[in-house]
């Protein structure tokens, strides 16, 4: 990709060529993000298009402070969360205060990306969302609680349960592959 700053400037002027260039460069990454949050392939496509539409519509608001990619990623993640909220498929009512899981290592190094995605898809939406936000995007529990409209404890317990289930699934997968 050519100079990103130049492309952003051109996108602010609504030049199709620059928009296409930006889309080509980031569509894979953003579609990957959408797929992590939204299980259904077609829904993930719709969410990505909506996110790109919002990026191009609001690109004039980007003042050049901070990372442009970070700004776009936030829009994509918010769009995913909005979609999940609209579909009302969160199931975040479980609050477990004294959950503890061991940090035993599961070695999924040989797992392919598609296997990882399949494993992630097996998690319930609430677990997956909190796991994505906390572990991958790096949000704090306080921020997740605000974003999803839940308590901090719920966010923590969802994460613990997500990790527990993930470990179980990965272990099963590793054992199956070895066996």
């Amino acid at each position: 990709m050519k100079n990103l700053e130049h492309i952003v400037q051109q996108c602010k002027l609504e030049r199709s060529k620059a928009q296409k260039e930006l889309y080509d460069h980031y569509s894979k990454l953003f579609f990957g993000i959408c797929r992590r949050y939204v299980k259904n392939f077609q829904d993930a496509e719709d969410v990505m298009i909506e996110a790109f539409y919002k990026i191009f519509s609001n690109i004039k608001q980007f003042q050049g402070k901070g990372s442009f990619e970070g700004w776009m990623k936030r829009i994509v993640v918010n769009e995913c969360l909005m979609f999940l909220r609209k579909k009302n498929i969160f199931n975040l009512n479980i609050e477990v205060d004294n959950l503890h899981i061991s940090e035993e290592a599961v070695a999924p190094t040989h797992l392919m990306y598609m296997d990882l995605m399949k494993t992630l898809d097996m998690l319930p939406t609430g677990y997956r969302t909190v796991f994505n936000l906390y572990e991958i995007e790096g949000y704090k529990h306080r921020e997740i609680a605000e974003l999803l409209g839940i308590s901090i404890n719920t966010s923590k317990s969802q994460l613990i349960l997500a990790k527990k289930k993930l470990r179980k699934l990965l272990k099963k997968k590793v054992n199956r592959d070895i066996g």
């Binding site: 894979k28 579609f31 470990r167």
Partner: peptide, 29 residues
């Protein structure tokens, strides 16, 4: 688990080509 997170963080997937046309038509309209 760390490796799993790293792999997911950099997970990329090619969206179908038609999506650009859909987006472009929306932007044009």
């Amino acid at each position: 688990m760390e490796d799993f997170k790293q792999k997911l963080k950099h997970y990329e997937e090619e969206p179908p080509n038609i999506n650009w046309d859909r987006l472009h038509s929306r932007l044009s309209s």
